[in-house]
């Protein structure tokens, strides 16, 4: 089992793993986008910037305060989520009566500000973030070496996605959320504090992005541009999957990550564009997206 389709097995599995990791980030980010879009009807363009903030806050906690990875995994999403709550209360909440596109424009402006501030402070080059000692090293799986941290990212991302799905589908809070997505005024009439729910939902979506950022920090170098380039791909992922279904966006995210990884093996020139090409094909065949409601 040294070669598969003429490709050395370690290379193939290595790229598959990389694809799975990228897919984990696509899944977590598109999940957050879908949750926010469901209730707020806003495409959160600053999602990428908030992902980057998550990574940076983790780096800052370690660098300035000596607080390590495990605490950052909790603190960073909380802090970034809090900034999300403030953003929603001060600015985004003023746009609900307007065209959806103003939300996109506003969050685009926010992402420019966040990115600009971090670029001023830390420059464009990346900051390294060490893998925590408990997760360093690699396992020998027989056919390839698997860095422990990469395995951890995939497992933890899956865990986060499934937890989010369970919260939305199986809990009372999730039921309120789904009801408010369908008909917010009616839910409010039943005595649920919908505006507070909207605020917290935005905060939670942003926290998800920040959590993905913390996970990404030891893999990619922490730099101000890490979010925006990713978020445009995530937009394509969202168009492919459709934002109607939580599980759908998770599946699409992981699936497209794997497809991207395979493309890197078989036709590297197209690896940067393959997701956009798939988007075109999906638009032609199923304009509403794979899991979307027409």
């Amino acid at each position: 089992m040294d070669e598969i389709f003429g490709i050395p097995a370690p290379l193939l599995f290595g790229q598959l793993l990389l694809g799975l990791i990228n897919g984990a980030f696509y899944a977590m980010l598109s999940l957050g986008l879908a949750v926010i879009f469901g209730l707020l009807n806003i495409i959160n363009f600053s999602h990428g910037a908030q992902f980057m903030m998550g990574a940076f806050v983790a780096w800052m906690l370690l660098h300035y305060l000596g607080i390590g990875y495990w605490w950052a995994l909790i603190l960073s999403p909380l802090l970034v989520g809090l900034t999300g709550v403030i953003l929603e209360r001060t600015m985004i909440c003023r746009l609900y009566k307007l065209d959806h596109l103003y939300g996109l424009l506003l969050t685009f402006g926010i992402s420019l500000i966040i990115e600009g501030i971090f670029r001023n402070q830390y420059g464009s080059s990346g900051m390294p973030y060490r893998i925590p000692t408990q997760l360093s090293g690699a396992w020998d799986l027989g056919f390839m070496f698997m860095p422990v941290y990469r395995g951890w990212v995939v497992v933890f991302a899956l865990f986060t996605c499934i937890t989010t799905w369970l919260v939305i589908e199986k809990t009372r809070l999730g039921a309120y959320l789904r009801a408010a997505t369908e008909n917010a005024p009616l839910v409010q009439a039943f005595g649920v504090n919908v505006p507070r729910m909207i605020t917290l939902t935005y905060g939670a979506g942003v926290a998800l992005a920040a959590l993905a950022g913390v996970l990404a920090a030891p893999i990619y170098s922490v730099n101000p541009q890490m979010g925006t380039n990713l978020i445009i791909v995530v937009f394509a992922v969202v168009v492919i999957g459709g934002m109607g279904s939580i599980l759908g966006s998770v599946l699409t995210g992981f699936g497209l990550g794997i497809v991207e990884g395979l493309t890197k093996v078989f036709y590297p020139e197209a690896s940067a564009t393959v997701i956009f090409i798939i988007m075109v094909i999906v638009l032609l065949a199923r304009p509403a997206g794979l899991f979307g409601r027409a």
Binding site: M91, L105, L106, G109, I110, S111, I113, G116
Partner: peptide
Amino acid sequence: MGAWVTVIQGVIFIACVLAFR
């Protein structure tokens, strides 16, 4: 002013969306 231009552009974006549509 370097990267501050991006920040200023962002601020203008927000001001336009919130106040001067």
